[in-house]
Amino acid sequence: MEQACSHAEGLRRLESMLLLRAFEAALLRQPKPGFQLLSRGEEAVAVGICTVLERSDPLLCSGRSIAMALARGVPSGGLLAELIGKDGGPNKGRAGRAHVSMPSIGLYGAHGVVAGNLSVAAGVALAQQQLHTGAVTCCVFGDGACGAGALHETLNIAALWQLPLLLVCDNNGYAVSTAVRQGIAVEQLTDLAAPFGVPAVAIDGTDVDDVVTAMHEAVTAIRAGSGPRFIEMRCTRMGPHSTATREERPSAELERFRDTDPIMRYEQRLRALGWLDDAKLAELQAAVATAITAAEQYAADAPWPDGDEALRDV
């Protein structure tokens, strides 16, 4: 357990995670929430990653992007509008969850094709290297992507060219219904990086402080010019794969997931440190609720996109 952060920073991390969870709940309350991949159980990964990255460090992620986009700083109202397909989001409703981007804050975007962003991220990292920006490109992908050839090719070229690239595997245990052990032959996902000489660590992705520590170490090393790194963040997908997917995991297993809830765990830690009590928690929750209400209003007021305008950007 990492305790290097300050009282205020600890509360900020908690509030960020509370916002992510409340936001997804608000999304599901929309009359037509759309086809969404939620991050309940994976909030510590998103908040921890975005705590360490600078806004000048390009971030790319998988289609499980909502938590990542919010943590990176996409305004919640705009993100909600984007997710339901309205103009008013960062991509005028065209990208939706699977492709949301906001380059002004370094979010190069989600990509709905599993493993599809890996080689693209290597290209973004190549541009940073070539243009001498000093930035670290971070690509977050799921455990499902570890069975794809794209990871092999990306690790190879990133190692060969010593690209400033941080590969983060958000291992939530399942590719839709297929457990990691049924889909990937290696004992540890970090083993995939070893043949290329890419330093790799596996950490507890339900512990936001651990995520921050691992990220800090990797980003510092990459920025110093030591080439690519790989971090596996083990966490839990507490809900079904998507809003359109049946949940068929046994209820006993789902029960056990409660113990790995990153928000509950962090609340307990902050209480143990004496930084959080019921009154403080209520205060944080009220602030989140206010933000969510404003986001819902923004999304409700946002117009629908114009087809002719969209056609001009092909």
Binding site: S119, G123, V124, L126, A127, L131, A150, E153, N156, I157
Partner: peptide, 28 residues
């Protein structure tokens, strides 16, 4: 060598590198 780069026999990552580098300011 920085501007004329041999790649391995790996077309998927080659085109992906080009796409990402293009998005981030190069013209591959």
């Amino acid at each position: 060598a920085a501007r004329v780069r041999n790649t391995p026999v790996a077309e998927a990552v080659t085109v992906g590198l080009a796409a990402g580098a293009a998005a981030a300011g190069l013209r591959p």
